[in-house]
Design a protein around this nucleic acid. Structure first.
Length: 424
RNA sequence: GGAGACGUGGCCGAGAGGCUGAAGGCGGCGGUUUGCUAAACCGUUUUACGGGUUUACUCCUGUAACGAGGGUUCGAAUCCCUCCGUCUCCGCCA
């Protein structure tokens, strides 16, 4: 969420950001309405506060007169009328503020200068690592996986629905191995604090990280507004310090968590849905950082690097794509996607999305820090990225490491966790 | 799930319709004293949103905030209602 002051004071930068996202035409009416509502709001505040000041003075006078044994009934009647007027004006003010809130929720973050303008055709590969394997003879992962008994797509669909995977045998152990491998790496070598978080969160948390109110249809909601299943551990972890003020010494903060992730994606059928590529429940290790604003860009590079190490250790060829403004997520100011090459399906698969949200999430969730004692609190910058999402990594391993005889070599870094060199 | 108690500033803790943004203490910050440290003493110490003022750091001023939201009242931290949370006891449960 942006600050209404930004709409007031930096309208040009805001419009430019929306133009770069290719969303200005759509959002111009919203921005214009916000500008009008902002004026309206400030005038309403003045009107209300003026009357409240008058009421406070009059109430005190009533108290004084009563104590002195004088009659105050006339003044009481006046003040009562004032109170009714205040109630009416406050209702108007509230409506104005609700309108502002609603408008602000509709405006995405402004992309950083380094982000290319335009739609996804402007996405830029900034670097790549490893050599993609020749795709000609490689089978897609779902064939390999089913043949080796690693997962059971049909029974997953039977017990839960399509898009729910049952992992079995070594396949299940692989999931457990991913979790331990990635958590060990990030906690021991990259300095992240390990967190284990609830997978059910409340509405405030979903709003704090920006999933609500816009994307309610993409989430699994529990009945009677009792909560939501998290689409990513980003939600509980980022919200850990919601409504708190941190010391500068606590920044940057780095936390990671494993969690299952639940995505309803209402209209998901269609593209890339076979096998493990697009599922309703999957597992992931998530990296979250908080930092001071001046650090934002450097911290994004750092975070992205941490996610890349996972792929390097697994020996999977990948590329880093800087998303163009129009392809950058709603709350993000700059995003690198990590794409691993899966020769069986002949595609680059997104396994991580590393973003800096500037103060957009922090403002929503009210996460602040004090730069020095006595300074005013200011919003932190939040960042997050997968490190990494399991199913597509699993798919890439099954395709990249499959052998002519149908077996799959286990990447060396994973062997201690799986207890096998080769899956056969 | 049942019964009870409670929710006040960075922390502890008073307050029980107006004099309370909130006593007192701790902590923090500034100062005096001191060879240094400690102690003592004095002062200071929230946030948000408006308005005015300054090039700016600032300063002045209004409003709001005592878990959240409503209500009663001329006036609510204080009375009433609803919700949320914490603690204690009982029950149930991996």
């Amino acid at each position: 969420m942006h600050d209404i002051k930004m709409v007031r004071e930096q309208a040009a930068a805001l419009r430019d950001g929306m133009r770069r996202r290719g969303a200005l035409d759509q959002l111009e009416p919203v921005i214009a309405r916000l500008e009008a509502l902002d004026l309206e709001r400030r005038m309403a505040i003045q009107a209300v506060e003026e009357r409240k000041a008058a009421r406070n003075a009059a109430s005190q006078e009533v108290g004084r007169r009563k104590k002195a044994g004088e009659d105050a009934s006339e003044l009481q009647a006046q003040t009562r009328a004032l109170g009714e007027e205040i109630a009416r004006l406050e209702a108007e003010l509230q409506a104005t503020e609700a309108g502002i809130q609603q408008g602000l929720y509709e405006i995405p973050n402004v992309p950083l200068p380094a982000v290319p303008s335009g739609d996804e055709s402007q996405n830029t590969v900034v670097r790549s690592w490893g050599t993609p394997r020749d795709a000609a003879t490689v089978k897609p992962h779902w064939e390999v996986g089913e043949a080796l008994g690693l997962f059971d797509l049909a029974r997953g669909a039977k017990i839960s629905g399509s898009g729910f995977i049952v992992y079995r045998g070594v396949g299940a152990r692989m999931v457990r191995a991913f979790m331990n491998f990635m958590l060990d790496l990030h906690t021991r070598e990259h300095g992240y604090e390990e967190c284990w978080v609830p997978v059910v969160v409340n509405r405030d948390s979903m709003t704090g990280t920006g999933q609500l109110p816009k994307f309610e249809d993409d989430m699994y909601a529990l009945g009677d507004d009792q909560g939501f299943l998290i689409p990513t551990a980003e939600v509980p972890v980022t919200n850990l310090y919601r409504d708190e003020i941190l010391d500068a010494a606590q920044l940057p903060r780095a936390m990671c968590a494993y969690s299952p992730c639940f995505r309803r994606e209402a209209g998901a059928a269609g593209k890339d849905t076979r096998g493990l590529l697009r599922v309703h429940q999957f597992d992931k290790v998530e990296l979250v950082r908080y930092c001071a604003p001046a650090d934002g860009a450097a911290q994004l590079e750092l975070l992205t690097g941490h996610a890349e190490v996972v792929l390097q250790k697994l020996g999977l060829p990948y590329r880093v794509v800087l998303l163009a403004a129009g392809d950058t997520g709603f709350s993000s100011a700059m995003t690198y996607d990590l794409e691993v090459f899966a020769p069986g399906v002949g595609k680059w698969l997104e396994v991580s999305s590393c973003s800096v949200f500037t103060d957009y999430q922090a403002r929503r969730s009210n996460i602040r820090f004090r730069a020095a004692q006595g300074d005013k609190p200011q919003f932190v910058y939040t960042l997050n990225g997968s490190g990494l999402a399991f199913p597509r990594v699993f798919a890439a391993i099954l395709e990249h490491y499959q052998q002519a005889d149908g077996t799959v070599v286990v990447p060396e870094a994973l062997r201690p966790y799986v207890g096998l060199d080769v899956i056969r």
